[in-house]
């Protein structure tokens, strides 16, 4: 077997176009070690549950998050990002009382509504990382610690406990070109990225984040 064979092929979507994206497990694992630095800012107790809402083809973005949970002694559990699986989000929230739910998108909000569940009640008392299409709605829910999670090409930007939207700075170089965030890989990867226009407008923040993570954080203005 040659070393150029990928372990997983996931995908990313920019400007409405979905591309296959190949990775090695070692790349996902090292991204998880980095992401643990952002996750630590919440000081979740080991043994607590964290629910991830995603789909299988988002492996490149969410496998590092799940590996970071393992590294911190948290128990990860999963539901699909789909209105049909929103019932599982409600059921797992009730059964396991997770400290956090990551990846909530509009599909979940619609599904919960369709099934007669009150999303605000399901999320109450938890940290909820919402995708851009659900963030405003989640932020408006009383008693919910709303945070952002954004799929930026093959990278996952995750908001820390101090409000910084972090991106793995060892892995990715982010520059702004014509207001658009442009991503390049900095490390050896099976599928190198060079000058990927991400479809997001935003800025790099040059102040260190109060959470203590040295990873750069960005402010997003929206989609281009």
């Amino acid at each position: 077997m040659t070393t150029s064979h990928p372990d997983q092929i996931g995908c990313y979507t920019v400007h409405g176009k979905t591309q296959f994206y190949s990775v090695k497990r070692t790349e996902l694992d090292r991204a998880g070690v980095q992401m643990a630095r952002t996750l630590r800012s919440f000081a979740f107790k080991p043994g607590a549950y964290v629910l991830t809402v995603s789909v299988v083809q988002e492996v490149v973005q969410f496998a590092p998050f799940e590996f970071a949970l393992q590294l911190l002694g948290l128990y990860g559990t999963n539901a699909d990002l789909s209105p049909f699986d929103a019932g599982r989000v409600e059921s797992l929230a009730r059964q396991f009382d997770p400290v956090a739910i990551c990846g909530v998108g509009n599909e979940v909000l619609e599904g919960l509504k369709m099934m007669g569940h009150d999303a605000a009640a399901v999320f109450k008392g938890r940290t909820v990382w919402a995708r851009p299409d659900a963030y405003d709605a989640v932020r408006a829910m009383p008693g919910v610690a709303a945070r952002r999670v954004v799929l930026i090409g093959p990278a996952l930007a995750l908001e820390c406990a101090k409000g910084g939207l972090h991106i793995d700075g060892r892995e990715w170089e982010v520059v702004v070109d014509n207001e658009e965030l442009v991503l390049s890989s900095r490390q050896h990867r099976i599928d190198p990225v060079s000058g990927l226009k991400t479809g997001f407008s935003g800025r790099l923040t040059d102040m260190p984040c109060a959470c203590g993570s040295p990873d750069p954080h960005i402010s997003l203005d929206g989609a281009i």
């Binding site: 997983q8 092929i9 190949s22 497990r25 083809q57 969410f62 699909d80």
Partner: peptide
Amino acid sequence: GHRRRSLSELGIAEICFS
């Protein structure tokens, strides 16, 4: 979730879909 690796640890690539 995304932690499954029983094929990739054998050198078999999984192309992931819903």
